[in-house]
Design a protein around this nucleic acid. Structure first.
Lengths: 212, 212
DNA sequence: GTCTATATTGTGATAGAC
DNA sequence: GTCTATCACAATATAGAC
């Protein structure tokens, strides 16, 4: 059961030490909030902890945001937008039958670059209020549909199996890349690119030894 | 981005209507808590909502539990234990080169039977206190290692590719089955068994059309 | 833009009658 | 085993000085 419980290892007990002293206060807020939301969950993270991690007083937060939910919203919509853009950009320069592998790799690289933000997006999106939630879901679905479109095209081109529904193929693909960010260990010998390639290979070729 | 945001659809706004009137109060507590934690998250679910869903007064809850965390703990450890048992039982009666497919199917069927509990386990495990968290993680790791053992044996037998590390192969497998419970639609035409088979096929054979 | 208050509401949990 | 009533405290957010 790969999940969200172990990493980041030292987050249990005390707040993670975040590089909270670079950039504009607005940007620091996002970064620090993402790290805390990732470690403890959105609802369990208090504005006090947030302020403390930023070396601010509680009241000072509200000069930059109106509600705690603003932070979650910005994390979700920015990470989704960046992911979509990056993957689109990557596959624009890919050969016709290399698009899926390229997309998988680009997704993983993008998600691992802003790991906290993506983890929070995927886990805490549901905590957004009605309107903002719908907006983020819309972004997410747009991305999903873009990928599903590629899958369908590859099926039509005879390269992807069409005995399995395109939506199932797409969701399986997304499960593979989306959740790897929770167990990937940056300290290991595997680069984000390399892991992306491995996952693409598993997804495309399967785990069985090829009959060849 | 398959995730946790849409289902269960009518959970946004009001508490889901749970079959809260069957079984012992202790069992109802687990069932109702799992449904609420699944819908709103553990931290965001209040003991008041819990009591309301059970048609009890707040104070009455504490005859059955000592803290809200007790519920999360029971959900996590029971669901992990059941999953491990069921998958073990299933593969005990499987042919030598059918074990992985059988395990995948059994995992999915078990996870979908107690869907709320498994979703909560996977998402909210991190909210457990130090000691109980470690205990549940231990259970989870035991299950992981059991699967990784199979993967390694299959590699040694020459049936699974060994150009990819067994731990990566195992984690990829777990991502595939673990997170499908968040997008699977019971109302659709696909049974849990059938989805398990599809995922097993994707995992084992890959999404590409086989050269054959 | 940050500070020191403080308002207000919601929280988990307990006490003790029935 | 459930009820009513309540405690002690933590939560988000605001007000107004500097």
């Amino acid at each position: 059961m790969p999940d969200l419980s172990d990493p980041p290892p030292r987050s249990r007990g005390r707040a993670p030490a975040v590089a909270a002293d670079r950039g504009s206060t607005a940007d620091r807020l996002i970064t620090v909030a993402a790290a805390l939301f990732r470690a403890k969950g959105y609802a369990a993270t208090t504005t006090r902890e947030l302020a403390e991690a930023l070396h601010l007083q509680k009241g000072s937060l509200y000069h930059h945001i109106q509600t705690k939910e603003d932070l979650l919203y910005r994390i979700c919509s920015e990470s989704m937008a960046r992911l979509h853009d990056e993957v689109l950009h990557a596959i624009a320069g890919a050969g016709p039958d290399d698009r899926l592998r390229t997309a998988i790799r680009a997704h993983l690289v993008a998600a691992l670059r802003d790991r906290d933000m993506h983890a929070v997006t995927v886990l805490e999106m549901r905590s957004l209020g009605e309107g903002r939630w719908a907006e983020v879901v819309e972004r997410r679905d747009a991305y999903r549909h873009m990928l599903a479109g590629i899958v369908r095209e590859e099926q039509d081109a005879g390269r992807l199996r069409d005995d399995i529904d395109a939506s199932v193929l797409t969701l399986a693909l997304l499960d593979l890349v989306n959740w790897a960010i929770f167990w990937y260990q940056p300290a290991g010998q595997l680069s984000a690119q390399a892991l992306g390639d491995l996952l693409a290979t598993i997804y495309l070729e399967g785990a069985l030894v090829r009959a060849s």
